Simulated scan of single mutants.
Amino acid sequence: MEWRTVVVIVLIVSLCFFIVPIKVDFDKTEKDAELFANYIARYNKSYRNDPAKYEERFEHFQKSLRHIEKLNSLRSSQESAYYGLTEFSDLSNDEFMQQALIPDLSLRGQKHTTASYYHQHSTGSINRMKRMIPIIGIPSKFDWRDKGVVGPVMSQENCGACWAFSTVGVAESMYAIENGTLHSFSVQEMIDCMPGNFGCQGGDTCSLLSWLLASKTRIISEIDYPLTLQTDTCRLHKISAKTSGVRVTDFTCDSFVDAETELLTLLVTHGPVAVAVNAISWQNYLGGIIQYNCDGSFNSLNHAVQIVGYDTEARIPHYIIKNSWGPSFGNKGYIYIAIGKNLCGIANQVSSLQVI
C-alpha cells in the first residue's frame, strides 16, 4: 500500500474520533437550549430578550443540569432526595448564596455559643441513634401539622429574612399550642424593628429572640403590620398599644450535635423549633429525603428553617422541615432531611421558645 494512502486512512480514522464527540456535545447543547426555553417560559424570567444576560444564565443553567444529573445518580432508593429544575437553577452558586441564603450566618451565630441561653446537649450512646433503635417515651413519628398549629409556607423572595420567618413561624405554633388558635404574626415587624437594621440583608434567630425577650416587644398581627419584603422604618410607634400580639417569655439556643434523640424529644414535648442549616445544596431540590452531599459543619450554616416533625418509621428516618421559599419549592414548600448525622448542620443551632 502506498504511503500516501496510509496517511489518508489514518487521517480519516482520526477525524472519526473527533467528529463523534462534537456531535454528542452539539446534541446535548441543543437539548439544553430547548429545556432552557421552556424553563424561561415556566418561571417568566425577565432576560428572555436580553442576549448577553440570556447567554450568561444559559451557562449557569447548563451547570445546574450537569449537577442535577450527578446528584440523581447517587440516589440509593426511591425515598432518597431527587433533584431537578427550580426557580434558582439559572443562578451561580455565589448568586444563590447571596439571593436566598445568609453568607455570614455562622459568624453571627458563633457569638451565641458562650451565652447563658446556650446549652451543648450530649448523649451517652451516639451509636444508638445511628442504629435507629426505637426511642422510649416518644412516638416513632410525629407531625405538628396534624395538630393544626403550623401556618402556611411563606415566600421570602429576594429578602434574606429567613431568620425572621422561622422565628415568627415557631412563635405562631407555640401560641396555637398554648391557646388552641393559629394566628399569623408579623414577619415584617421583625425585619423593620430588629436593632442593627439587618432586615432583608440578614440576621439570626438567636439574636432576634434575645432582643424580643429583653425588650418585651410583642410580635403583633400580620394584618396590623403586613409583609412588604423590604427593609423599612419601624412603624410600631404608629400602631395602637391595644393591638393583639404574642410575647416571648423564654428561649434557648442549643446544640444537639451527637444528641439528636434529645432533639426529637424536644419536638414532641415542647413544639416546633427554628434551626440554622446549610442549604447551599438545596438549589435544585425537588423532594425526597436528603442523605448525602450536605455539609453539617457550624461554619457552613447559611439559612434558617423550622422543624415541625419527624418520622422514624420511614425507610429513611427523617425530619420534616418547613422552608420559606414558597409552596412551589421542594415538596409543597417542605424539605426532608435524614436523622442522626447532623446533615446540613441541622443540630448545630436549635432555637426553642415560650410565649404568652
Rank of each mutant, 00 (worst) to 15 (best):
E178P: 14
E189H: 02
E172W: 07
L91S: 07
D192P: 01
M97Q: 10
V20T: 05
S215W: 03
K111P: 02
V153K: 06
A41V: 12
A347K: 06
F36S: 02
I68P: 04
G340C: 08
G151M: 11
S297L: 11
C162I: 01
I239A: 00
A338P: 03
M1R: 14
Y175W: 05
F198G: 15
S255D: 03
F17E: 06
L301Y: 10
D254A: 11
S92N: 01
V8W: 10
A164I: 03
H60F: 15
F142R: 01
V13Y: 11
C344M: 12
W163G: 03
S244Y: 12
S328T: 10
R48I: 01
V149N: 05
N342A: 08
H237M: 13
Y334S: 13
S166F: 08
R4W: 01
Q99I: 10
G137S: 10
H318W: 01
I177W: 14
F88Q: 05
D204T: 04
L209Q: 10
I219V: 04
G330C: 02
N323L: 12
V268F: 02
F142N: 10
M132L: 10
R48A: 12
D90G: 00
I219K: 00
N38Q: 14
N323Q: 07
M97H: 06
V153C: 09
R4P: 03
Y285K: 06
D311Y: 02
N331R: 14
K45D: 02
V153P: 04
I320Y: 04
I280K: 15
E55F: 07
L301K: 05
S184L: 11
N127H: 14
W211L: 14
Q78C: 08
T228G: 13
L266C: 06
T252L: 06
D143A: 03
L107R: 09
T167P: 10
F256E: 00
I307L: 00
V170I: 03
M174S: 11
F26Q: 15
F26T: 15
L71G: 02
